[in-house]
Simulated scan of single mutants.
Amino acid sequence: MSIIVKNISKRFGSFVALDDVSVSLPTGQLTALLGPSGGGKSTLLRIIAGLERPDSGSIEIEGTNATNLPARKRNVGFVFQHYAAFKHMSVARNVAFGLDIRKTPKEATAARVDELLRLVHLEQFAHRLPSQLSGGQRQRMALARALAVQPSVLLLDEPFGALDAKVRKELREWLRRLHDEIPVTTVFVTHDQEEALEVADEIVVINEGRVEQVGAPDTLYDEPANEFVTGFLGPATRLGGELVRPHDIEVLSHDPGSEFLPGTVMRATRVGFEVRSDVLVESDDFTGVVQCVATRAEARSLKLDSGAQVWLRKAPGSTSVATDAPLSAPNEFPFANYTI
Rank of each mutant, 00 (worst) to 15 (best):
K6G: 07
R11H: 15
R11V: 10
G13N: 12
G13P: 04
S14R: 11
V16W: 09
L18A: 10
V23D: 12
Q29S: 15
A32W: 13
G35H: 12
G38C: 12
S42N: 07
I47H: 13
A49K: 10
E52S: 04
S56R: 15
E60N: 13
T64H: 14
N65M: 03
L69E: 00
A71T: 14
R74Q: 07
G77F: 04
A84D: 10
A84L: 13
N94K: 07
P105C: 07
K106T: 09
E107D: 15
A111N: 12
R118S: 06
R118T: 00
L122R: 03
R128E: 02
P130G: 10
P130A: 05
S134W: 08
G135P: 09
G135W: 00
L143K: 00
A144Y: 02
R145A: 09
D157H: 06
P159A: 04
G161N: 11
L163W: 01
D164K: 00
K169P: 00
L171C: 10
R176A: 15
H179F: 13
I182H: 09
V184K: 05
V189Q: 08
V199W: 12
V204E: 03
V205Q: 03
V205M: 12
G215M: 07
E227V: 15
V229C: 07
V229Y: 07
T237V: 02
R238D: 01
D248G: 07
E250R: 05
T264E: 11
V279Y: 02
S283F: 06
D284N: 12
D285Q: 14
T287D: 06
V289W: 00
V289A: 00
V290Q: 00
C292R: 03
R300T: 05
S301N: 09
L302P: 09
G307H: 04
W311Q: 07
K314C: 13
A315F: 05
S318Y: 01
A322Y: 02
T323P: 08
T323E: 05
D324I: 02
P326I: 13
L327M: 12
F333G: 03
A336S: 15
I340V: 15
